[in-house]
């Protein structure tokens, strides 16, 4: 009896996932692609983001969009906001990106689920002061539920802990956590060779031993 029920449990979600995947493959992804200015050949696509306002989106190769209510919010009037995402970068489910001027995610930057990134102080652009662009460096890793406010630059390979609120610039290769986010550990996860070299010469890479205790990030 138990193995049968176990099988039925897996079957239930297999059917649900297959049905959802078919809808994405034949309907949602092609429709979403029509809204993009530039995109790579492949895309990791869990569900269609909800687009509101005027927004120009330029994507690299295999950019990831999580499911749920992922929202990309542009401007209502005036010049459109610009969202640039590099190769293999991604935004998780239920996140919200408000783009009134420019938000940049460089290559391999990962934003987890439930995040909020905004380059404007207010959702209403008539009342907000001038937007300041947000820049997330390559290999950066943003934990879940993080809020990133306008004008913030996050350095290469920086790790932001879960539920942090980032209002200041974060230097490269560190762990920053808290509200407001402060640097908790320095020199975390820095590869010996530069990541650009190691990704081209695949194989074993020697890691620099980090003396810091284990990082409490998501």
């Amino acid at each position: 009896m138990k193995p049968l029920l176990r099988f039925l449990y897996e079957l239930h979600y297999l059917v649900v996932a297959t049905w959802r995947r078919l809808g994405i493959l034949f309907l949602k992804e092609p429709l979403f692609r029509s809204q993009l200015e530039e995109t790579g050949a492949s895309m990791v696509f869990y569900d269609s983001p909800i687009l509101t306002g005027k927004i120009r989106i330029r994507l690299g190769e295999s950019v990831m969009f999580g499911g749920g209510r992922l929202r990309l919010i542009g401007t209502e009037g005036g010049s459109p906001g610009e969202l640039i995402m590099g190769n293999h970068s991604g935004i998780g489910a239920n996140s919200r990106v408000t783009v009134h001027e420019r938000v940049v995610l460089e290559d391999h930057a990962m934003v987890s689920f439930g995040c909020s990134i905004s380059d404007a102080d207010s959702a209403d652009e008539r009342r907000a002061p001038a937007p300041k662009p947000v820049h997330i460096g390559r290999y950066a890793w943003i934990g879940n539920g993080v809020r990133i406010y306008q004008g913030v630059t996050i350095g290469e390979g920086a790790i932001i802990g879960a539920k942090s609120v980032v209002i200041n610039d974060i230097p490269p290769y560190c762990v920053a956590i808290g509200n407001p986010a402060e640097v908790y550990f320095r020199n975390v996860g820095r590869p010996k060779k530069s990541p650009a070299q190691t990704s081209t010469t695949s194989g074993t890479t020697q890691m620099e031993p980090t003396s810091t205790p284990a990082a409490p990030q998501e």
């Binding site: 293999h88 391999h108 990962m110 290999y139 820095r190 590869p191 890479t205 980090t210 990082a215 990030q217």
Partner: peptide, 18 residues
């Protein structure tokens, strides 16, 4: 609430990218 016994991704940038 979220309860997690792991980090989800490795800490090193290049391992994460791979």
């Amino acid at each position: 609430c979220r309860i997690t016994d792991n980090d989800g991704h490795p800490r090193e940038a290049d391992l994460r990218a791979r």
